[in-house]
Nucleic acid binder design. Structure first.
Lengths: 170, 170
DNA sequence: CAGTTCGTTCAGGATTTATTGAATCTTGGA
DNA sequence: TCCAAGATTCAATAAATCCTGAACGAACTG
């Protein structure tokens, strides 16, 4: 008979309850719409489901993902503000818990992601207009007008973000 | 001397002007944010750049993509309302031109895509709540409250879409 | 300082997604 | 009805993306 493998008594079972699995799937699907890898949705889903702080190893065991995925996924979530690190006396592990203030999350997303994309689009449009107006580049007739319409729409979209932010405060 | 290969005199050159290439890249990038394949962005970009109606073969030649990609890409754009088919007397080809009313495009996107996703999320949330409230599923304590918060946020987001649509009408 | 425990990184493998091109279907004209 | 041009489909291939796990470094501990 082989020696019993050493195990530190887990405070809660490492298998997922059906309810947890369901929550995880929900966030995996949500993440797909934001082009996030499955593992990121899984991690946030588990943290959201349990409402507790978990260490990296915990996520690896319960979700059955690799340390690499867990580490990278946590980084993404940290940078997005979707997860907070908490610390415990006399414990070297990092514990993470889900940010549950969804409104704050969305607001942050709008401020960071959306704003960044709008700015990038702005740069592109400026460059595009320069290229189009250069006679050497053989722009089809009427193109400059169409690019102008792109820009005017871009300005309109820019005015939209603050409006949404305001709405979220209600 | 080999016979001259038969060629139907093209009305415009099959190589892309720099201005056209720039516009195409712009829409390729835009499409990435919507998880659209490169080919779809290229097709819309070319139609937008020239402002003219093009047949499938035209797109294949100028963009250097396969017939398959062109056909599927056009279908996606058609279904999204981003492209319109036009017809010509005594010509069996289908010609496509870009829908230039961007505001209408965005409105349609909100109405179709966004609404569909919200409805899907609604179904998922209802199911999720059922699973969570079933005692057999071992939901962690407090989870039902968190799911309730998800739903309340979902309701708020639903109210957002009409608001944006209204804004676009201005 | 040697030995541990954690977390991160990244090259390589696995999986998902996009593209190709030949076969097939559709349509209109003779 | 047959033919040919045009469009679509889809199985095979290519490309992009994600995941893994071993190697590494940092930070503690005895």
């Amino acid at each position: 008979m082989p020696p019993v493998t050493k195990q530190k008594a887990p405070l809660s079972p490492v298998v997922l309850a059906p309810a947890e699995r369901e929550v995880i799937e929900f966030f995996v699907h949500l993440g797909r719409h934001l082009s996030l890898p499955r593992s990121v949705g899984e991690i946030y889903g588990l943290l959201f489901a349990t409402g507790e702080a978990h260490a990296l190893d915990d996520l690896v065991q319960r979700l059955g993902i690799s340390k690499g995925s867990a580490s990278q996924g946590l980084r993404v979530l940290r940078e997005a503000g979707a997860v907070r690190a908490t610390f415990r006396q006399g414990d070297r592990k990092d514990y993470y818990e889900a940010e549950l203030e969804l409104t704050a999350l969305v607001r942050r997303f709008l401020r960071d992601q959306f704003a960044a994309r709008m700015e990038e689009a702005d740069h592109r449009l400026v460059q595009l207009q320069a290229v189009v107006q250069d006679p050497d580049n053989a722009a089809p007739r009427g193109l400059d007008g169409r690019v102008e319409r792109l820009q005017s729409w871009h300005r309109k979209a820019s005015r939209l973000a603050p409006l949404v932010t305001a709405f979220l405060k209600i």
